[in-house]
């Protein structure tokens, strides 16, 4: 099967590896890697500076998700983007922006516009909110789940503030306390 046929078919690949994590989506999802799709690579991806989110998904046939993964576990501190400077929030917002452009551009220029149609239909449906998920893993000292939620709450507010032009539905997810449904996430073994 070619990539174009496999992207959003319910029976196709649901297991992906990204940033040291293994994502296995269940039956409720139609999902693919946006930044690896042919229409992105030969379309918007050729424009310098463009960047797309990691996953594009449709949940239950009715909710459009853009999912970006950041795994800071085992990173040296100087490589980590600091929340307080807003770099990470800006990067996420730019990726979301470019991803939307990619979807619209692909619909207009792809050899198979019917393939993108369900996505664009959701994108342009005024009553259907686009959902943005930042999957963020990092090494924090162990602390009670409630405290982690507070940290995520503050982080989420920072990300939200850069995405108000599109949606207020922005959430942070991680393996601790995951609520994103029908999805298993695990660490990949670290290379020696």
């Amino acid at each position: 099967m070619t990539v174009k046929q496999t992207f959003f078919m319910p029976q196709t690949q649901k297991h992906f590896e990204e940033s040291g994590l293994a994502f296995t989506f269940g039956e409720r999802w139609q999902v693919g890697k946006l930044d690896e799709h042919r229409d992105y690579r030969r379309g918007l991806g050729t424009l310098e500076g463009s960047k797309a989110v990691d996953f594009l998904g449709i949940l239950d046939g009715r909710e459009l998700y853009l999912i970006e993964v950041k795994n800071f576990r085992h990173y040296r501190i100087e490589n980590k983007e600091r929340l307080s400077t807003g770099e990470l929030a800006l990067e996420l917002a730019q990726k979301v922006r470019d991803s939307l452009a990619c979807l619209i551009g692909a619909y207009h220029t792809s050899d198979e516009p019917d393939f993108w149609q369900p996505v664009v239909k959701l994108l342009c449906h005024q009553k259907r909110k686009i959902k943005i998920v930042l999957w963020l893993e990092h090494d924090l000292p162990p602390s009670p789940l409630a405290r982690q939620k507070v940290v995520q709450l503050v982080s989420k507010k920072v990300f939200k503030s850069r995405l108000t032009w599109l949606t207020s539905q922005v959430i942070l997810e991680s393996r601790d306390g995951q609520r994103l449904p029908d999805l298993q996430v695990s660490n990949l073994p670290r290379p020696p």
């Binding site: 239950d60 009715r62 909710e63 009553k127 259907r128 909110k129 959902k131 009670p144 789940l145 409630a146 405290r147 939620k149 507070v150 995520q152 709450l153 989420k156 539905q169 959430i171 609520r179 449904p181």
Partner: peptide, 20 residues
């Protein structure tokens, strides 16, 4: 204090994951 913030986090997550 944390319980109140965590409950706020959960309420927002409920809204996020509520179906249309």
């Amino acid at each position: 204090i944390v319980e109140a913030f965590a409950a706020h986090y959960d309420r927002e997550a409920d809204l996020f994951y509520a179906t249309d």
